[in-house]
Nucleic acid binder design. Structure first.
Lengths: 304, 304
DNA sequence: CAGGTTCTGTGAGTTAAACTCACACAATGA
DNA sequence: TCATTGTGTGAGTTTAACTCACAGAACCTG
């Protein structure tokens, strides 16, 4: 990371002073004089170019900007402190922690987890979800599921499930506004997620209607929220197949259009290189590949 | 935070050296000599008590411990760098960002979002999800939904929806192993989440069977994963009502037992004090309260 | 195999950040 | 009005961070 960092030692003083709303109390906590804290805060404010505290008669109170900065600085420093504490006290537990992107966890992995556990009752799985790049996770993991291929230094990865996208929506939506061609999407709300920002534009281009303006768009922080919104009749989502096949089979979602069907980046399992010595990881990754082969488009052989 | 922080300036050198796997390259990036970087790394390793790099013949490579530390240090430093950049370039947008805990977003809020948008087409909502304490979020928000009451300095909050918990499961589960009394739970897998770690123990205690040992327990990182697992027939979850009423009505979940029904901490909206000057926040919070009053247990008047 | 190149390790000395000390000023409370 | 508490800051001190110079090791090339 080459982004500009502020004077880091000053952050320690800032965090304490802001949390306690007192330079003197912060000085006590940090075992320095209040003058040191005062100078550090002044240095930080000068460097940032904005006041972080309001002063009134020997008392300080965070400004709104200072408050916003504090919560993020605390988050950053907490992560560093926690990482440091963990490093000093390794906590070795025997379980496989899977960190999956939320949509995959909910619509593909979770419905199959029971089968895995019946087949492997001796393996304890713990499922976490995150959209983040694996290099930026708060907690360690043994296996990650992310869309790929991708660049994951220090890890082994392998694609195991391809994906294609089609417009999907609740059947009730079509009763009010039928969709027979891509042009009909102009009457609808298109649902999208931060994690797939260009999906609709790409699909519309392939469909031959790049300039189409929908009635509205609805943005969600996570794709699974967009999918749930579609099930709730809020609009049309570009649904991933074969992941949503169960919902199509159940009739909670329908695919009004069959073309174009865009093949997009599929799913990879990702493990730290050191974890590849663990046979349990092999059991799990083989199981993932077998499940993918039996339900949808397993990728052609591709090196990790 | 009074947790021990390592020498912070050394982290800057460590991050660069670790990312580039070169002290000389790190020195170039940081505009210091390689000797400065070497000394900083040595200081950090001495302070932590563990080597972070393997040395071989003038080359360095991260140890496994060093690698794990790097990803977390990078995360922490990135948050600080991003907070710093945001502070310098305020990005003022006109939209309401809601940060809700995932379960509430999916099962209560999202099904109602369409109604809100039809009633208020001029307000753009952006829905984010997180379990984190609001003081530790990566991104700013205008309104948060968390379970409470709670202590949220600098914010205004108000409970608007109470909650009670009952064992819920898929109907297919009862076909194989009926549940007529709390003792019957011994034959089942109890599903739980990190965010509600003591829920089952409390419920079993109230049910008069504190020593009951279930066939298994299954832990999930998020409560909504536990709920989805229950719908997929993986076990019994302590389901929140009235949130899951729609699923009970639809038959995807059933409540085999009606007692004891535990009233637990419900839901609060939380807004930064400064945001209370914004009339849009009032529109949204009043709408939340009205929706809660019409669907479930609205709390007795309680100050924020 | 020898020499050159590149990279890290470290002692000695230098520089600058961090700190202490002491005093000044302001708000609050008794 | 005076005492108390807290912040601001200049001057001086201390220590972390740094440069400089040299040494050692691995790798590459001729």
């Amino acid at each position: 990371m080459t982004a500009t960092l502020p004077p880091l030692n000053a952050l320690r003083a800032f965090e304490a002073a802001a949390r306690l709303e007192s330079f003197s109390a912060a000085a006590g906590e940090l075992f320095v004089t209040h003058g040191a804290v005062s100078k550090q805060i002044k240095q930080l404010e000068d460097w940032l170019g904005v006041p972080l505290f309001e002063r009134s008669g020997g008392r300080v109170k965070l400004t709104e900007v200072g408050w916003r900065y504090l919560v993020q600085v605390q988050d950053g420093l907490d992560i560093i402190a926690n990482a440091t504490a963990q490093l000093k006290q390794p906590d070795r537990q025997r379980r496989i922690v899977i960190n999956s992107i939320p949509t995959f966890a909910m619509f593909w992995l979770l419905p199959r987890l029971g089968a895995f556990q019946r087949e492997h009752p001796d393996i304890e799985l713990r499922l976490m979800t995150s959209d983040r790049d694996i290099s930026r996770l708060d907690a360690p993991f043994d296996l990650a599921i992310r869309r790929g291929p991708g660049d994951w230094p220090g890890h082994v990865s392998k694609p195991f499930l391809e994906e294609r996208e089609l417009p999907l929506c609740a059947p009730s939506l079509l009763e009010r506004l039928p969709i027979h061609s891509p042009q009909d999407l102009a009457q609808h709300t298109l649902l999208q997620a931060d994690t797939r920002p260009t999906a609709w534009q790409r699909w519309l281009t392939l469909a031959g209607v790049p300039e189409l303006k929908p009635a509205a768009t609805q943005q969600f922080g996570h794709f699974y929220l967009a999918l749930r919104a579609a099930m709730n009749g809020l609009g049309v989502v570009l649904g991933p197949l074969p992941m949503m096949q169960a919902e199509l089979d159940a009739g909670t979602l329908v695919a009004p259009l069959q073309e174009p069907s865009v093949v997009v980046r599929g799913y990879c399992w990702i493990a730290p290189r050191a974890a590849m010595n663990d046979p349990t990881i092999h059991v799990l990754t083989r199981w993932l590949e077998q499940q993918a082969a039996s339900t949808g488009i397993a990728p052609q052989s591709q090196p990790g």
